[in-house]
């Protein structure tokens, strides 16, 4: 099972490299969706079915929006990178950050041995233990989302609404009609 997750992660890494390095923008968009769907299968193997269902919708919506932004008549394809300190310095910096991150992961609990298994009063343990009595939900993730941390979910919905309103305001072509306009009453 662990090996399968590793293979999936490797697939995601390869798709990400293709998405960033390919010269074809449409191919890059499809590759990034492949990364997303790889993560969905990885969520299933990590025993997170609730998390796995949501990104299916999200990935499809992101794919549609990205294709809408990519399909344009006369879109210039340009190759090359932008100078940022110089290419080699950037790559060296990223490698240093990567190595430092590996060191940080050494201090984390090992993969497959979560905090909830070792510490008796971890907050998640209380959710698992008394989730059914407290909320009546057999699915603990749903209990956390809609009962213990319901304000969090409300905030999430607010953020989503705000971002959609912002996108509509940015993409709107016509300004709102002036009050002196006779048709203004209709809107």
């Amino acid at each position: 099972m662990l090996e399968l997750t590793g293979v999936l992660l490797l697939f995601m890494v390869m798709a990400a490299i293709i998405a960033i390095e390919t010269k074809d923008l449409l191919g890059a968009v499809i590759s990034v969706t492949a990364v997303g769907f790889g993560s969905i299968i990885a969520f299933f193997y990590l025993r997170a079915p609730d998390v796995a269902i949501v990104p299916i919708v999200v990935e499809v919506v992101v794919l549609v929006i990205l294709i809408r932004a990519t399909l344009r008549a006369g879109l210039k394809t340009f190759i090359g990178n932008r100078p940022f300190f110089g290419y080699l310095v950037t790559v060296a910096l990223l490698v240093v950050i990567f190595l430092a991150g590996i060191r940080v992961f050494g201090g984390l609990p090992a993969f497959g041995d979560p905090v909830v298994a070792r510490i008796p009063d971890a907050p998640a343990r209380a959710y698992i233990e008394s989730g059914l009595e407290d909320t009546g939900a057999t699915n603990v993730v749903t209990a956390v989302l809609l009962d213990y941390r319901a304000y969090d979910t409300l905030g999430e919905a607010t953020v989503l609404f705000t971002s959609i309103v912002g996108a509509v305001a940015i993409l709107r072509r016509k300004a709102r009609k002036k009050p002196s306009d006779p048709e203004a009453d209709e809107w």
Partner: peptide, 18 residues
């Protein structure tokens, strides 16, 4: 996202659905 879910994984575990 994948990393945060991986932190909570227990080897041989089951989904948190009773």
């Amino acid at each position: 996202n994948v990393f945060i879910v991986m932190v909570g994984y227990r080897s041989g575990g089951m989904a948190p659905i009773m």
